[in-house]
């Protein structure tokens, strides 16, 4: 009897919201606390220029992490997204340099992103191949394809109007930061309040129960991957337009940074739980840590190890917390 009621409270949305709120509050405190601590050690860290660089340069990771969070909530994983962002950035940049209308160059990244990810989603959902196999294979197809097509050459001489990331709204708000906030809020609302958004949690939480409720699991998974592809396209545009050149290679280990942001943001790797507000805060935190290392005179080569520890600690904490809540 006790186990039954406890299991019931775990599914109670209010209770779940409280737990998630605490993860997000924790992250917000960590973001601010770290800024103060590092600022005390080295005040230059808090210079407006540095803080805005940190946000600007990493907004694309937060945008991609929104899609990744949906994928993980649905009970899947995607390790091809880093390579895909590299490919989409190159597609967009190549079109822009070769005189395609800028809007077409931008749209191409979004459309190609949706197509590639929807294809992967379909293979995973309808042919029932594990996501890790499909996305590992796709990672190498995209990575190898990109380098062999471009030969690793950089794209330069991009038209000025191509640089989406340069736009400042109302003269103050940089477009990448605006997009990061907008995407996060819209996705959070959609996942929380719309039927199709709730379906993602249902499929990730208990696929069989979701099926009995009339939710098509394959269709939901394809939808999630298609959306993930759209966000990857948006992330690729921010990535491609923030510098004057596009390095036509895959940014190394980008997928790991994106997965770290999602997991540390409180998206449970067991599926069914998590919000994109957490993942965006986590993306900001990771970028902040990377920048802080420089200001406290630690070699930035340690950043990947810090990321690894962060994922490990969050995942273990998540599982222990679930076990405690289940009353085991």
């Amino acid at each position: 009897m006790t186990t039954l009621t406890l299991a019931g409270t775990e599914a109670d949305p209010r209770r779940r919201l409280k737990v998630l709120a605490s993860q997000e509050a924790l992250l917000a405190i960590a973001v601010i606390g770290l800024a103060i601590a590092v600022g005390l050690y080295n005040p230059r860290f808090l210079a407006a220029r540095n803080l805005s660089d940190v946000l600007l340069g990493n907004a694309y990771i937060a945008v991609a992490a929104v899609g990744m969070s949906m994928v993980i909530v649905s009970g899947n994983i995607d390790i091809s997204v880093g390579a895909l962002i590299g490919v989409l950035a190159t597609i967009s940049g190549t079109l822009a340099v070769n005189g395609a209308p800028i809007v077409v160059a931008w749209l191409a990244a979004l459309v190609a992103g949706v197509l590639v990810m929807a294809l992967q989603g379909a293979i995973i959902a309808y042919l029932r191949i594990p996501a890790i196999v499909v996305t590992l294979g796709m990672l190498s197809i995209l990575k190898g394809g990109l380098i062999s097509v471009t030969g690793g050459k950089w794209i330069t001489d991009l038209p000025d109007s191509f640089h989406l990331a340069d736009i400042e709204l109302f003269g103050v708000l940089p477009f990448p930061v605006f997009l990061m906030i907008l995407v996060t809020i819209l996705a959070a609302l959609w996942m929380r309040y719309s039927a199709s958004g709730r379906a993602i949690y249902a499929v990730g939480g208990n696929a069989e129960a979701a099926r009995l409720c009339g939710i098509s699991q394959p269709r939901t998974i394809v939808m999630v991957f298609a959306l993930h592809g759209f966000f990857a396209g948006a992330a690729a545009l921010l990535y491609a337009t923030q510098l004057r050149v596009i390095q036509s290679t895959v940014p190394p280990n980008l997928e790991l940074t994106i997965i770290t942001a999602s997991v540390v943001g409180g998206v449970s790797i067991l599926g069914g739980v998590g919000t994109v507000i957490g993942s965006t805060l986590a993306a900001v935190l990771i970028a902040e840590i990377a920048s802080a290392l420089v200001f406290i005179d630690v070699s930035p080569y340690w950043i990947r190890a810090v990321q690894g520890v962060l994922i490990l600690v969050t995942v273990i904490a998540d599982i222990l917390r679930r076990r405690r809540m289940a009353g085991a």
Partner: peptide, 16 residues
């Protein structure tokens, strides 16, 4: 998940 985390961690240690 564990080995994705240590994929990052062990490579990070090697780099560091």
């Amino acid at each position: 998940i564990m080995t994705i985390a240590t994929l990052a961690l062990y490579r990070g240690l090697a780099e560091g």
